[in-house]
């Protein structure tokens, strides 16, 4: 956990509602960890998964879902952003030699960085990237260079017609551990598919560093905070239907 003032380098739209931000001033994050970015005029900071880190530049991807992310799209290069970085507990990926990475929607963001880390370690993961449709599909070119990439779309407009979990059921991929991030229904599906992996969860957060208990979930080993013990949990640990 670290407090940092980040400098916005670039802020561009990849699709009509998904943006990429490149930021200077952050230390190298652990894959699966996140940062909280403060915005003028908004009380709470916003959490974003670390989606890349190269030559001191941190990448995040965000979808415009409300007034805060809408305001983010208007930030220009050079803007100074107050942030809390290196938050949460990331992926336990060391020692995995046949990793399977599975994303749904913008869940691809932290997994892109995980794929980069595998690439640096000389490991080529299998990567199943699910999207709603072709126009939502981002990072395809980058990922296909460093992964065995399989793209799925809900409407069949690109790649496999269906979601990532359905793809895996029909097309077995050998793996020693999987790493998944995406909407909750997909994560539930991955848990049913196999518990030999890790799930990165999302939650509405207050603080982002474990103080407010605003994002607690139930696990087989008690209550845990998505922002502190998570966002990455062992797949067998999460109890989705506790309440």
């Amino acid at each position: 956990m670290k407090q940092a003032t980040l400098t916005l380098l670039t802020n561009k739209a990849l699709t009509p509602d998904v943006y990429e931000m490149r930021l200077a001033g952050a230390d190298r994050p652990v894959p699966g960890s996140f940062l909280e970015i403060g915005l003028d005029g908004f009380f709470l900071k916003r959490p974003f998964g670390a989606a890349g880190y190269k030559d001191g530049v941190l990448t995040v991807y965000y979808r415009v879902v409300g007034a805060g992310t809408e305001a983010m799209t208007r930030l220009s290069s050079g803007a100074k952003l107050e942030a809390l970085t290196m938050l949460g507990t990331g992926f336990n990926y060391k020692g995995s030699t046949r990793p399977l990475i599975v994303s749904g929607g913008l869940g691809i963001a932290p997994l892109k960085y995980l794929a980069d880390c595998f690439h640096e370690a000389g490991v080529r993961p299998a990567f199943v990237a699910g999207f709603r449709c072709r126009s939502d599909a981002i990072l395809i070119d980058e990922l296909s260079k460093i992964c065995d990439l399989f793209v799925t779309t809900d409407d069949g407009s690109l790649g496999y017609h269906g979601n990532a979990v359905e793809f895996l059921k029909q097309n077995p991929v050998a793996f020693d551990r999987y790493f998944a991030c995406g909407p909750e229904p997909m994560l539930r599906g991955m848990q049913r598919f196999s518990v030999n992996g890790q799930l990165s969860l999302e939650a509405r957060m207050g603080c982002g560093f474990g103080a407010c208990m605003g994002c607690s979930i139930t696990t087989v080993s008690g209550f845990k905070r998505v922002c502190k013990e998570g966002p990455v949990f062992d797949a067998g640990e999460v109890i989705f239907d506790a309440r």
């Binding site: 908004f42 009380f43 709470l44 805060g68 939650a203 509405r204 957060m205 207050g206 407010c212 208990m213 605003g214 994002c215 607690s216 979930i217 139930t218 209550f223 506790a242 309440r243």
Partner: peptide
């Protein structure tokens, strides 16, 4: 455990 999520709303 407390209440179900979401437990936080910004103002």
């Amino acid at each position: 455990y407390g209440n179900p999520l979401p437990r936080i709303a910004e103002c």
